[in-house]
Design a protein around this nucleic acid. Structure first.
Lengths: 211, 211
DNA sequence: CCGCATCCTCATGGATACTG
DNA sequence: CAGTATCCATGAGGATGCGG
C-alpha cells in the first residue's frame, strides 16, 4: 500500500474507486500483462512472446507505469531482470476472475481464429471452478494441448496450482483439445466438464450448464 | 445471451475470457458508462453530464458498440430514448465492485481535484459493505452532500437501494461530506464508519481498518 | 431543448527497425 | 535479450452544427 498513487495524465479525474482503478489498470494491455504475471514473475521477452501483438514500446511503457503505480515490481533475478506483481497487484486476481466469469458467453462462440495458450487457463480454471465446486477441497487436472495443469481448491475458495505428477482417477474429454482428469476430491463430472467446456467454448455443454 | 458477440476490430484475438471481456468493455469510458446505467436507465444527455470529459462522439460510439455486443439496450421511454443495461450487462456489477474494492488504497489519497458525484456511491457502497458486514440483513443510510442513500443488504450478499424516508437510529460522521445513519440491523459502527471513510478517502480510518 | 454527426487537432497505439 | 527510436495509423477530446 506504500507508493500507491494514480497517474495524472489521462486520468478520468473522478473520485470513485472504479475510475481510479481504471486509471491504473484500464489502459490497453495492462490487465493482460497482469494475467501473465499472476502465475509468477517473467522476463521481458517471455512477457512479449506471451502477448501476441503487443508492441515492444507499449509493453515497456506499461511496465514502467504499473511499476510506478505499485502494481508491478522489477526484481533482479540471478539470471537477469524479472517482472513480478506486488502483493497489491496480485490482488487483481479477484476482479480479473470476475471479469472472466462474466465473459463466459463470449467463449461459447468457440475459438475461431483467436490464438490460445494453455497459460491463459492458469487464471480461468480457478475462476471457473471457484463458484461451481460443490465440496472443496478438490483436486482436478486439465490436460490442455499437452500441458498438464493440476489445481487444488481449498475450503476458503483459494486455489493453487500443484505439481502435475499425479495420475487422474477419472479421465473425461470436453472437446478435441482438452482432457480433464479428476485427481481427487468431490468435484462432480458435470462440474469439471462444464468448466472445461466453458473454457474451450463447447457451446452444447455451456448451454446445458448456463442456460 | 442471444446476440452476444465480440467485435472484430481492435480485438486482442485471444481465446481467453478476460481478453474477450476486455474486447467488449475494455475501451475507454465503457465501464464508466455501465456504472452510470447500473442504478437505472438514463438518457443520452444525462449520461453525458454524469461523465465529465467524455466526448459526444465517443459516448455515441461506445453506446452503439456495447449495444451490438449485448451489454446495453435502447429503450423507448414515453419521454424519449433511454439507455439501459441488458441482464447480462447488469452482471458486470460483480467485477466492477471487485475492481472498486481493489482500488481502495487509491482512494486514501483523498479527493484532491477530482470531481465527485454522490451517484458514484451507488456502486461503491454495496461493494464496500458486502465483504465487511458482520450479520446481514442490515440497512444503512448515507447522507452524502445532501443526497440520502439507504441500502438494504441481504443474506445472500445482494443489496438494493431502498426508499430514503427512514429515520436513522444512530448518526455518525466519516468526514466533512458524509454522514452515516444506521437505520436497522447489526452493522457495527466501525464497519459503517470504515466504509464511508474509505469511500471518501479518510486516510486515518482507512489505515485503522485496512492496515 | 435533446440526440447525435462532423470536423479538426493532438495524444496515443501499433509495427518495424535499431541499439547497448 | 531488453529495451529505444522512429514513423504512421488510429483514437481521444473539444467545438460546432443540424435535424427532430
Amino acid at each position: 500500500m506504500e507508493n500507491v498513487k494514480h497517474p495524472v495524465g489521462r486520468s478520468y479525474g473522478q473520485f470513485c474507486g472504479l475510475a481510479r482503478a481504471l486509471d491504473v489498470v484500464g489502459d490497453r494491455w495492462n490487465l493482460l500483462v497482469v494475467r501473465e504475471l499472476l502465475p509468477g514473475p517473467l522476463r521481458y521477452g517471455e512477457l512479449k512472446s506471451f502477448l501476441p501483438g503487443v508492441a515492444s514500446n507499449l509493453l515497456a511503457e506499461r511496465l514502467r507505469t504499473m511499476e510506478s503505480a505499485g502494481v508491478v515490481e522489477r526484481r533482479l533475478g540471478d539470471t537477469g531482470v524479472l517482472y513480478g506483481l506486488t502483493p497489491w497487484g496480485a490482488e487483481l486476481r479477484e476482479p480479473m476472475e470476475a471479469l472472466g466469469r462474466w465473459a463466459i458467453p463470449l467463449l461459447a462462440t468457440g475459438r475461431g481464429d483467436d490464438t490460445f495458450r494453455p497459460r491463459w487457463l492458469a487464471l480461468a480454471l480457478p475462476a471457473m471452478l471457484r463458484d461451481r465446486t460443490a465440496a472443496p477441497p478438490v483436486e482436478v487436472g486439465f490436460d490442455v494441448e499437452g500441458l498438464l495443469i493440476v489445481l487444488r481448491i481449498d475450503e476458503d475458495g483459494s486455489s493453487a496450482r500443484i505439481d502435475a505428477d499425479r495420475q487422474p482417477e477419472t479421465v473425461l474429454t470436453a472437446g478435441p483439445e482438452i482432457v480433464i482428469g479428476l485427481v481427487a476430491g468431490a468435484l462432480s463430472v458435470d462440474q469439471a466438464l462444464a468448466s472445461g467446456a466453458a473454457l474451450l467454448g463447447n457451446a452444447d455443454v455451456l448451454q446445458r450448464v448456463f442456460p
